[in-house]
Computed example of a mutant assay.
Amino acid sequence: MRLVWRSTVGKKAVMAVTGAVMLAYLVAHMLGNLKIFFGPEEFNGYAHWLRTIGAPVLHHGWFLWLLRAGLLTAVVLHGVAAYQLTRRARAARPVRYAHRRARTDYATRTMRWGGVILALFVVWHLLDLTTGTVNPHGRPGQSYQNVVATFGTWYGNAVYGVAMLALGLHVRHGLLAAARSLGLAGARAERALRATGTGLALALTAGFLVVPVAVMTKVVS
């Protein structure tokens, strides 16, 4: 395992696998969020169900904390591998190219800063809707009301909006980058992967942003 981690190919594989894990979670999380349109009773019931998964083997809330621990591990491995690969690439090319490729540089910057924005957002999101520390309502068992309270503030919408746009760009570039790193993106497959990444990024971004928009327009209140 240590040999895999030390190799460049191994780090790229770790990034691809952890990225896939996080992407699967995001899709499930987005679909769960959309249950808010069925009203407070169903949404709060869904939130309660998440805390009872695994019972009676697992105590109340244990599944979610195990899930968070697993996701945190994936995030850390993903970020560390990305940082170390960047350092290796710079060390292997101490002198910059005379002509920089604008598209590649844009994608690289997007991935780097998008990752930082998302990491900061995760901290805020946990303090907001998990612990209730920064939530205007912040009452356990009232997930629907907590979500409405968050998106009833300008800063809640601003933080969430910026993070979801960063997420969309990260997913769009990340899918193609992962395929290239693993040697799966040939000339024919690249267009399909680019279209898939763009479509998935748009779907995730729209799926997450529709909730704050619904609260702002009083469709959800």
Rank of each mutant, 00 (worst) to 15 (best):
N33V: 09
L26H: 06
A13E: 11
R93V: 11
L26G: 04
A203H: 05
L66C: 11
H137G: 02
M22Y: 07
R96W: 14
R68E: 11
W124D: 01
I53N: 02
V80G: 01
R112K: 12
Y160G: 00
A166W: 00
R51N: 08
M111D: 02
Y25I: 04
T153E: 02
L200P: 01
R103I: 15
W49G: 07
G161D: 01
V116H: 01
I53H: 04
R87F: 13
G70Y: 10
A102M: 14
R88N: 07
V122C: 00
A192N: 05
G186I: 05
G45N: 06
A69R: 09
G19T: 12
V14G: 09
W113F: 15
L64T: 10
L26N: 07
W113L: 13
L71R: 04
M216W: 13
Q84I: 08
M164D: 00
P40W: 07
L200H: 05
A91Q: 11
F38C: 07
R90V: 11
V57G: 05
N146Y: 01
M111I: 06
V116E: 00
V116W: 03
R68C: 12
R87T: 14
G32F: 12
A55D: 05
P140N: 03
V211Y: 10
G199F: 09
L58K: 03
R101M: 05
L175F: 15
G115L: 06
G54N: 02
L3H: 14
L23M: 13
R93K: 13
L204N: 03
A20G: 12
T108P: 04
L23I: 13
V219F: 12
H78A: 08
Q84H: 08
L23Y: 10
S221T: 09
G168A: 01
L184A: 06
A28D: 07
R112V: 14
T104I: 08
W124Y: 09
N157Y: 01
R180C: 07
V95I: 15
M216S: 15
T130Y: 07
V123A: 02
A92Y: 03
R100N: 15
V17Y: 14
T133G: 00
A185K: 01
R87W: 13
K35M: 12
L126Y: 12
T52G: 03
V159T: 00
T52S: 08
A98E: 08
V9A: 15
L184D: 05
V116M: 03
A89I: 05
A98L: 13
A24D: 10
A82K: 00
A107T: 04
T110Q: 11
L64I: 15
H99P: 11
R109I: 10
K218N: 06
R188A: 12
V27D: 06
A178R: 00
D105T: 14
P94G: 14
R100P: 11
T205Y: 02
E190L: 07
V215P: 05
L72P: 06
